[in-house]
Design a protein around this nucleic acid. Structure first.
Lengths: 166, 166
DNA sequence: CATTCATTTCATTTTTTATTGAAAAAATCA
DNA sequence: TGATTTTTTCAATAAAAAATGAAATGAATG
């Protein structure tokens, strides 16, 4: 009980910083907050599993941010728990398969929107039927174009997925 | 000077609302604010060109939001100005080519990040060289994986673009 | 099973982003 | 040109999103 838990300086290497900045930037693209990018970036280049406290100390983020960020990353499969024998704390490693983010984005963001959009298009066609002739024609043309785009999107997605999932 | 400019009720049809909601949802995906989705959605189904005031009245958005939203939409080519003879105000129509949004996103968001990322990867390789043997190996493996992914992304983009641009 | 340590949850605060509207600038018209 | 209308800009405000940290929950240890 003598050696006190002196606050570790917990520095980040230049390599760490590059990785972190890179992932902040890319994950923002799919709507993920900075803290998630930080966590994943650090884990991506970490030579060994890190505990939540390691992450908090080195990234200077709060308990809540660390816990929530890890939860999210686990939920998309981008981070795995590693049971370190003799250690009380859970330790985490990055799953290096970056397609995890893309597939999660497609499943959680894109596909639901596409589905809702298809329902909308049907409703829109219903509304367009009740318009007067001249306007109806252009309305249908435009709705048709929307449909065309959704179909195109739905055709492209599986292809993109196949391309992404190594 | 008798007939006063009584505030128009400026209702939105059910069709308008479906279109607006749909575009709010999709454009948010590429980082565009709600007001931009509203404007484009309304123009997309409008049977005739609308003025900025039309948009403000019907969408209940401010002058600033209308002006800035139109500016952005024009800048990506998603909205065109139509000169209505005898009319003082500019009128706007939607360019129905939805790929405009995708290409703008790729040019303005994706590509710049990819370029920065490639520079980062080079720097990271430099840093990794100065690490001790055991850590160096894994570091290089991971950086290699990043490179692999960027290349894959860069290969896929032109293909996606070709697919999108009808 | 009681205590300690680790993690999650969530109300609050902070930060970021979007919207507003008044003032400036630009365009139109007589 | 000068009066008037339209559009842009931007500082202030409002709204949305993210981060914080204290309290609740859940595990591990002895």
């Amino acid at each position: 009980m003598a050696g006190e838990a002196v606050e570790e300086q917990a520095r980040l290497s230049e390599l760490d910083i590059e990785a972190i900045e890179m992932f902040i930037s890319f994950l923002k693209l799919v709507g993920l907050p900075k803290s998630v990018g930080e966590i994943y970036g650090l884990l991506f280049v970490a030579p060994c599993p890190l505990s939540m406290e390691d992450l908090m100390d080195r990234l200077q983020i709060s308990l809540g941010a660390a816990s929530q960020g890890l939860k999210l990353l686990r939920s998309v499969g981008a981070v795995k728990v590693v049971y370190a024998p003799g250690e009380r704390r859970d330790h985490y490693v990055a799953d290096l398969e970056l397609s995890k983010f893309a597939t999660a984005f497609i499943k959680e963001e894109l596909n639901p929107r596409l589905e809702r959009a298809l329902q909308r298009v049907e409703r829109m066609e219903g509304f367009a039927k009740g318009m007067d002739p001249k306007e109806r024609k252009t309305a249908f043309q435009r709705i048709e174009r929307l449909k065309h785009w959704m179909e195109r999107g739905q055709k492209m997605l599986p292809w993109v997925l196949k391309f992404l999932v190594s």
